[in-house]
Simulated assay, not measured.
Amino acid sequence: MSARVGTLALAALAVAWIAPAGAEEAPTLKDGRIHVVGRARAETAPDFASVEIGVEAKGATPAVALDAASSAAKGLIALAETFKVPEADIGTTAVTLQPVTRSVPQPDGSVSERADGYRAANTIRLRLADMGRLGDLMRRALEIGANRIEGVSFGLRDPDAAEAAVRVAAMKDATMQATRLAEAAGVTLGRVVAIRSPAEAGSSPYAPMPAPMAVRSKGRGAPVPLVAGTIETAADVSATFAIAP
C-alpha cells in the first residue's frame, strides 16, 4: 500500500468510527493510535447467604424486657452453632431498649399516652456458606423466640477475584476490537500505550432481598423457601493502542 493510499484508508476509518456528540464512546483510530472500550459481564453463583434475625420482647421494667430479648438472642447463637456457623460469621448488629406507651381515650374525646412498660430488641447477623440450610435455620429460629427477620442477602466472600476476572475479559475484548480495526485499516497493531478502567464499572458483591418483616411462629413447619440466583459482575476497560511503524 502506498503512503497516500494508507493515509486515505486511515482517514476514512477514523470518520466511520467517531461517535456523534452525546453517543456512547465508540472505537476510534486517529493520531496514529487506536482507542477502544472493552466490555465484559459474568454471572457468578454466590457462595454465602446472610440473614439478620431479631428478637423483640416486652416487659414491665427495662431489666425484664432486656433479659427476655437477651435470652432469646443466646438461643439464636446456640442454634447457629448447631448449624456449624463459624464464630466469625455470627455478630450482633443491634440492641435497643425503649419505653412503650399506649393510647387511652379520655371522657372529653381526646386521647392521652400512658406508660406501658418497655420493649427490648436484639438482632443477630448470621452468615452461612451452606446456603441450602438457610431456610431451615430461619424456621428453627422462630421456634426459639425470634420474631423479626430484617433481611436476606447473598454474596461473594472474594468479590475482588470476580471483578479481576471480568476486567481481564474486558481487556481481551478491547484487544480483539483493536486488532479488527487495525486489520480493517491495513495497519499493524502496536503496543498498548494507555489503559483505564472507568469509575462506573464494577459489581455489587451482594444480592439483597429487601424484605424486612415481622414473623410469628405457629409451631414447627416447613423451611422458608429461598432462591440465591446469581450475582452479576461487569467491567469496562478503555484502552489505547499504538500503530506499529
Rank of each mutant, 00 (worst) to 15 (best):
G22A: 13
R41A: 15
V37R: 13
E25K: 14
T28A: 10
I34D: 01
T28F: 01
A49Y: 03
H35V: 08
G32P: 07
E24Q: 12
F48R: 12
A21T: 07
A49R: 01
T28D: 01
A40Q: 10
E25S: 12
G22W: 06
A26P: 01
S50E: 14
P27A: 15
A45W: 02
E43S: 13
T44E: 14
F48H: 15
G32D: 13
S50T: 11
G38M: 04
A42G: 13
A49F: 03
F48S: 03
A45Q: 10
R33W: 02
A42W: 02
H35Y: 11
V37Y: 01
D31E: 14
L29Y: 02
I34R: 00
A40K: 06
A49V: 09
F48M: 10
E43K: 12
A49L: 03
L29H: 01
P46K: 05
A21N: 04
A49P: 03
G22P: 10
R39K: 08
F48A: 05
A26F: 03
A26W: 07
P27S: 12
R33G: 01
P27L: 10
K30M: 05
H35R: 15
E25N: 08
P46F: 02
P46S: 09
K30F: 05
G38P: 05
A23E: 10
R33K: 15
K30G: 13
A40F: 07
G22M: 10
A40R: 01
G32M: 11
G38S: 03
A45P: 04
A45Y: 04
F48W: 07
A21Q: 11
A40C: 09
V37L: 15
K30H: 12
V37I: 14
A49T: 02
L29Q: 06
P46Q: 07
R33D: 06
A21V: 14
A40P: 02
R39W: 02
G32W: 13
V37Q: 07
E25A: 15
G38Y: 04
H35S: 15
D31V: 02
H35N: 14
A40M: 10
L29R: 00
P46N: 08
S50K: 11
